[in-house]
Amino acid sequence: MFKIIDKYQLGPKISYALIEAPLIAAKAKAGQFVILRLSEKGERIPLTIADFDRSKGTITLVFQELGKTTGALAAMKSGDCIMDLLGPQGNPTEIENFGNAVVVGGGIGIAPVYPLARELKEAGNQVTAIIGYRSKEYVFWEEKMRSVSTHLLIATNDGSYGGKGFVTDVLKKLMDKGERIDRVFAIGPAIMMKAVAELTRTKNISTIVSLNSLMVCGMGMCGACRVSVDNKTHFTCMDGPDFDAHKVDFDELMKRLDTYKQEEQV
């Protein structure tokens, strides 16, 4: 059992949970995820690790209420326990001093961008963070993001906070200004990551995305999370979740994400 130490809402249907998981915290690195299950009849779902504190033995999860399990997790309180928690899973993001790194986060994808930006900055990169929210109401972790980035650029879809538009609009402006970008990292909805990939492909900027495939096992034995990268099948949990954005078949990924849409509506 894994105890929830702190739990609150960050925005509409967006929750924060601080969880006691010393073994996971000891090994976790940016880019990794956990698989959790809440009850005997519950499903296993992957959630990206949004932060970790090795000395306190905690990990942070930020998640959106999308289905039954995330809904149930959102309803839990400090002091409650998560039944099953497996991690840290997946390969950590490869961090080095690339020079000028741009991290792009959309919606709850901003949470895992935080430790990524922190590690990139610690490795000596100039870190430009572009974070996008639906509207002002959804904004979270702005100050945290500012503390780990050299430049922070905010956009909202409706323009109620920061610039109006999508993260790709902001990224495009940077690219059009001719700013040097050595590497881009994008985490967010598949459609956003696809748009970032298409944009950076035009200037051949090396881009890494963290894929959010459906998963069951999270440890390479089921293949639910398979994804085509460079026309070869990979398992997101074992070979990813980070992949070269320019080689990912996003259309297939988005279709696979909708596999159980019909069942979910029942």
Binding site: I24, D84, P88, Q89
Partner: peptide, 9 residues
């Protein structure tokens, strides 16, 4: 349970 050797240790 929930302990994948290779990842957590």
């Amino acid at each position: 349970p929930n302990f994948l050797v290779g990842r957590v240790k």
